[in-house]
């Protein structure tokens, strides 16, 4: 890892990273793939988030669906753990709650493959400070 020696270094690194993320999220990019975030704070893990993450990784690989599954922190929906956020290329991310392996399979089959929504989407209920 290169050291960040100045504000300019940081800005350069940030721009590079942001460009990468933008490219990743834009549907026009042929390399864009499905991205899934699993809420993995202590409470999420206690409700089974780790099993869901493993299940998603295995299942997507088995079905040859190119996807990146990463962990993230608490999304705040304790009443609906485990929660996952799925971003399809060129689409707004969608959060699903109460995900067990059955629902995870349903999400892959219906939403990821066939672009249908499934019951139990958690609407974003907060404002962000971006922009």
């Amino acid at each position: 890892m290169n050291k960040i020696k100045s504000f300019d270094d940081l800005k350069q690194l940030r721009e590079g990273l942001q460009a990468k993320i933008k490219q990743r999220n834009s549907g026009s990019n042929p390399e864009s793939i499905v991205r899934i975030k699993v809420a993995m704070s202590t409470c999420g893990i206690a409700s089974g988030a780790k099993e869901i993450m493993n299940f998603l990784t295995d299942e997507l690989e088995q079905q040859s669906i190119e996807a990146v599954v990463t962990q993230t922190g608490c999304m705040g929906y304790c009443y609906a753990e485990p929660t996952i956020e799925v971003s399809l290329p060129g689409k707004e991310p969608i959060v699903f709650g109460d995900v067990d392996t059955f629902r995870a399979a349903e999400i892959i089959e219906k939403y990821i493959i066939h672009n249908e929504l499934v019951d139990g989407i958690l609407p974003v209920n907060y404002r962000t400070i971006d922009n």
Binding site: G73, R127, T128
Partner: peptide, 11 residues
């Protein structure tokens, strides 16, 4: 809700 302290949590 407005997320400032939690801006990156779950993101």
């Amino acid at each position: 809700q407005v997320r400032i302290a939690l801006r990156n949590c779950g993101v």
